[in-house]
Amino acid sequence: MKRWFRRRVDAAYERLLSREIAGAPTHVAVIQDGNRRYARRNGGDAHEGHRAGAQTTEQVLEWCQDIGVEELTLYTFSTENFNRPEDEREALYELLCEKLTEFADADRVHDNEVCIQAIGEIDLLPEHVRDAVAYAERRTQEYDQFVLNIALAYGGRSRLLEAARGVARDVDADKIDPGEIDVGTIEQRLYDQPVRDVDLIIRPGGEERTSNFLPWHANGNEAAVFFCTPYWPEFSKADFLRGIRTYEHRKESWRRTRARRALALLGAVSEPELTEAQSIVNRFRDSLPVGERPPGADRELTGVADAGETTSNDDGLDSSSRAAD
């Protein structure tokens, strides 16, 4: 009876959260933490925990597609995982090969046109894992409706270091001028395929740190972060929706901050800057509490609404989805 009641409550909570969500982040990144602790708590070994976690991974992929997320990155095997006992590593390798092959052949992956790609130091992995990665990438390389990034042998700091070394080599060989180095120069060297800026990082398992995960794409985009206590195999749809709600609150907070900053500038800037500030107030005024809105905020300022339209959309995001600052 108690279990039945709990399921009813959980289902009602999921429906409530679903109604509260107005939009989805473009790119969600997940640190799949707690598999081994889940197994130990339930009297099993690490492999059983990882296999249980793989089932959660499949569910999260479906949840992302249901609400309109376009890219999902899974922190699956870090460079630190090479230090784990050999038998645990081998079991992980076998599970990775099994799931990569299964995903690459799954009807739902092809029906939804999911592109699978691996990021990280793939060359450090055993040959049979590299073969499974190549198979999954080859089978889905033509798709572009949804991107599933599998972070394998991954370390964010090591990727940045390797990118910096690549730029330094090109400068030394006179292939690039130092003055031409920009954001795109680094991003082209981080991964073989483009990776969108991260909007939301989710980490279950009770740890409150992002563990060197996608630092360029997450920190540079000021991604929202959602920490929760369930171990990854226990991660539920309600937990997932709470993470999405965290992203929405973070986005709304950003809009309020931008509107307040623009209001503060209105009385102390030159004419060109004043026009831009007024444009920002127009676009974000609904994010401010009524008491903070300036006089006349309910009316469009003549000639101002068009001032910011050429470079930004209504969310204040530029064409690369980064927050305009």
Rank of each mutant, 00 (worst) to 15 (best):
A164E: 06
T57W: 02
V171C: 02
R6F: 11
N282E: 15
T302L: 15
A11I: 09
A223N: 05
A118E: 05
T310P: 07
D286M: 12
E273G: 12
H110E: 12
N42R: 15
T79P: 03
D315W: 12
R15W: 04
G206N: 00
Q145L: 10
W232I: 00
D298M: 09
R189L: 13
K175D: 13
P294G: 07
V183G: 07
A262S: 12
A259I: 04
R157Y: 10
I150T: 07
G43Y: 14
D177T: 09
S211A: 15
R84Y: 05
E207H: 04
T275W: 15
G43F: 14
Q32P: 00
V69E: 01
V30P: 00
E70I: 02
V129L: 06
L317N: 06
A12W: 11
S279V: 09
S158W: 12
M1T: 15
H128V: 03
V195T: 05
E62W: 10
H217C: 03
T101K: 09
A153P: 01
A307H: 15
R139Y: 10
D182Q: 08
D105P: 08
R7A: 12
K2F: 14
E70D: 03
S320Y: 06
T185R: 11
E70A: 06
E94F: 02
A305T: 13
R159P: 01
E90D: 09
T79N: 06
S321Q: 10
A163C: 05
G68L: 11
P25I: 00
C115F: 09
L301H: 12
V304C: 11
D45S: 13
G220R: 09
Q65I: 05
V129M: 05
D10L: 13
A46F: 06
A262H: 09
P289G: 05
T257C: 05
G34R: 01
D107Q: 14
G68Y: 13
P178R: 13
A324C: 08
T229S: 10
D298T: 11
